[in-house]
């Protein structure tokens, strides 16, 4: 009769919280989350602070080359990803290609986004060996995975009237795409590609540690040789790179959006 019951309210909250806590404790037990490990690890903190700080400033000039290599890797992957994303996006758009092509392309793009980049890197290393090229391939592929989907969605949302009117003037298939579709899709593709560049710079640092070279490799190597203050220096360098990439990408994106509005 009364659509409220204090007991039900209490029970619902208690059960919800209990379930959550139980699952968390089970998961924590599986992950060896125990106070002892925490205490033991935290006990090392002062020693850590001594070993990691101050950064080894003397190694600063050794960081320039790996940083440039990481930047080149990320830039090449972003450009490649952007260039290939358009044709891939075309193949993923329902109003351009038949279903038998769109569906597999969409599934592949979905799978591509589901797999961590590091895992993809492993396969490229099998093919091309260790080095920046494999890293670039991994990042280019995941850029295509994201940008291709976005382009496909943008094309499906694009204004059909423009395409129809172009077709009515007797334009060929490629002309319709070049003059009807590309101008509609390009601004958002460029903005997303700039965002992707920001992501790629971060990822290229990480991939470097597994075998793509660059500053990531420098960090991993320094850690491996227990030169922790050198690692701090490398991390500092990568932070500067990441921050710069974020700033540049953000500025360009803002300008792009303002252009689009005016």
């Amino acid at each position: 009769m009364v659509p409220y019951s204090a007991r039900r309210q209490l029970v619902r909250r208690a059960v919800g919280f209990g379930l959550w806590l139980g699952l968390f404790l089970a998961a924590a037990a599986l992950c060896d989350l125990s106070p002892e490990i925490l205490k033991q690890g935290l006990g090392k903190a002062p020693q850590f602070a001594r070993e990691f700080f101050p950064p080894l400033w003397a190694a600063a000039d050794e960081m320039v080359e790996p940083l440039l290599s990481t930047l080149a890797l990320a830039s090449a992957a972003s450009l490649l990803g952007m260039l290939l994303a358009f044709p891939v996006g075309l193949a993923a758009a329902a109003n351009i290609v038949p279903v038998w092509l769109r569906l597999p392309v969409r599934i592949l793009l979905g799978a591509e986004r589901a797999l961590p980049e590091i895992l993809q890197l492993l396969f490229f290393v099998v093919a091309f060996g260790l080095g920046p090229f494999s890293g670039m391939c991994a990042l280019a592929f995941s850029s295509i995975g994201m940008l291709g989907k976005l382009v496909g969605d943008a094309i499906e949302d694009a204004d059909d009237k423009v395409l129809e009117s172009l077709k009515a003037t007797g334009a060929s298939f490629w002309q319709v795409i070049r003059y009807g579709l590309l101008p509609q899709v390009l601004p958002s593709l460029a903005a997303n590609a700039l965002f992707r560049f920001d992501v790629n710079v971060r990822s290229s640092v990480v991939l470097g540690a597994i075998g793509a070279g660059g500053i990531g490799a420098e960090i991993a190597r320094s850690m491996g040789m227990l030169q922790y203050n050198r690692a701090t220096m490398a991390v500092l360098g990568s932070l500067i790179l990441i921050y710069a990439a974020e700033t540049v990408s953000g500025q360009l994106r803002r300008r792009l959006l303002e252009d689009g509005r005016s």
Partner: peptide
């Protein structure tokens, strides 16, 4: 701070 660097430090610590 990239999660990767955090992990590196934590792996050494824990």
């Amino acid at each position: 701070l990239s999660s990767f660097f955090i992990l590196m430090v934590l792996l050494i610590a824990f």
